[in-house]
Design a binder for these strands. Sequence first.
RNA 1: CGGGGUGUAGCGCAGUUGGUUUAGCGCGCAGCGUUUGGGACGCUGAGGUCGGUGGUUCAAAUCCACUCACCCCGACCA
Length: 563
Amino acid sequence: MRISQLFGKTQRELPAEADTASHQLLLRAGMIRQIAAGVYSYLPLALRALNKIENIIRDEMDKAGGQELMMPVLQPLELWQQTGRHGALGQILFTLKDRRDRQLAMGPTHEEVITELVKYNVQSYRDLPQLLYQIQTKFRDEPRPRAGLVRAREFAMKDLYSFDADEAGLDISYEKMRVAYQNIFDRCGLPTVLVEADSGAIGGKESKEFMLVTDSGEDEIIHCSCGYAANTEKAASAKSIAHSEELLPIEEVATPGKATIEEVADFLKVPHSRTLKAVFYVADKNFVFGVIRGDLEVNETKLKNALHCTDLRMATEDEVKEAGLVPGAASPVGIKDIQIIADDSVSSGTNFIAGGNKPATHIKNVNYPRDFKADIITDIAKARAGDTCPRCGGKLASSCSLELGHIFKLGTFYSAKLGASFIDKDGQSKPIIMGCYGIGPSRLLAAIIEHHHDDKGIIWPASVAPYQIHLCPLYREGSKVAEVTEKLYADLTAAGLEVLLDDRQESPGVKFNDADLLGIPFRVTISPRSLEKNSIEVKRRSEKQAELVGVEEAVSKLRELVG
RNA sequence: CGGGGUGUAGCGCAGUUGGUUUAGCGCGCAGCGUUUGGGACGCUGAGGUCGGUGGUUCAAAUCCACUCACCCCGACCA
């Protein structure tokens, strides 16, 4: 491709719209253009890179036994009502009406459609397992699109769905995908961390995310040098025994004007871990009393899962009062008719300070289960950097990261609701066991740039670069630059290499800067200076030094370098 | 949805106490000439519903009201 004809222009100045590196570079390189919040056109260079990413994914999916298909973007809203996800995804679903007033959704994902499809094509265990995938544009009305292609409302998505007859089969499919995903990220030059993730309300039994550690990420992950890694929604930490003493009798203590854990602990001169914190939520319209050790915080995802609710929010002060509690001095001791959920940290110590259930009063020496009972006691605490690793006892660290892929054991949630069953060997009808495995090629495009760039521009890994070779002729009248360049361009192209030719009448500085910005792996400079030595210059984008290569062996040398 | 910010040419911006403004500047773009190893220079030129609507006024990019869009933080993100 000749740059003089390439659709898309580079920009010198930083676009005011963009803050993250990938967004800025994609815009400056003339690769994308926004038309609405989170909605982009992909210009030729971006599309070439995207296609390469998608083909790597395709290749790995096919190797793992996947079959590609295509499914509708327009989906009847009824289908979503059948699985109840209309509510769960409600806000995020783009919906529209057709001329007969039928409601349709623009597919944000395709579990419903594929299950419906599989239902009519699988009857017997002999038809299983199946690994089916699609690479398509998906639509989600995100509350806040951000960072260009990182979180868009219209974006490329690959989803593979696995269908198995039993759990053992699902385990095999899941493992195949884990390996395939690892291969995909390796081939795209992205080092990822595999973290345990929350599987959410639809109750899959296992779920992991492939995360890229990057400052521009939007998720926090907790990890340890022993290899333990988890999304903060899921992360656990070991709650050491804070203190263990002989149990003392309960004793009231006046705490005028002290409401927060900090105030009470300071006033009574005890560490935060010596107190019990009370937190109040409304879960699916039910008032819930949460208890956790004073130095810890509640992880709302864990809480939500423990309560099996779909809607969870903090209670307002009025709601707390209405429940007969005293904000700032509430205590689980003596509470009746309110659901109490306690973090297991309440048994990690003795003689805690808790609220007194009357103004300006706390009580000392509260012990679980002697003084109060919980309807549910489980881990609902947030793991934080610096906490103790639940696996090895080491110290946990946290990093900002970007979710690139998600593998998920779904179980029978969709197949049961939509009636996708098969006849097993024993003649019994059973719901098909499903898994889903998602990866966003357009987000990968951004992630690759996020990870592979310098202050001059993009540095494409060869596997996904839009072109392999960038020819930079420095034309001079009376020189053979044009002639050599044209021959080289023709020969390299004939040799099957992907070549970008900067045939513009621009100064060397402009050409070099654009070459750095576009980030093609190999830059070849053809100039009167090098032609004097009957050579051209070859420089990797990732390196500073150029290498002289004889004009005659240029094609074979470049073929070898590109590999 | 809450908080903050921005809308003036393809991009980056100035102008915003109303009036010498036929709305400027830099980049980019077109033509001509001189240049050519890290974003060259000169001359000439094209390009604008000043986000939109309504209002105030002799007069609005500028003041008022409403509204739309986009960005950032948070909430949210099966």
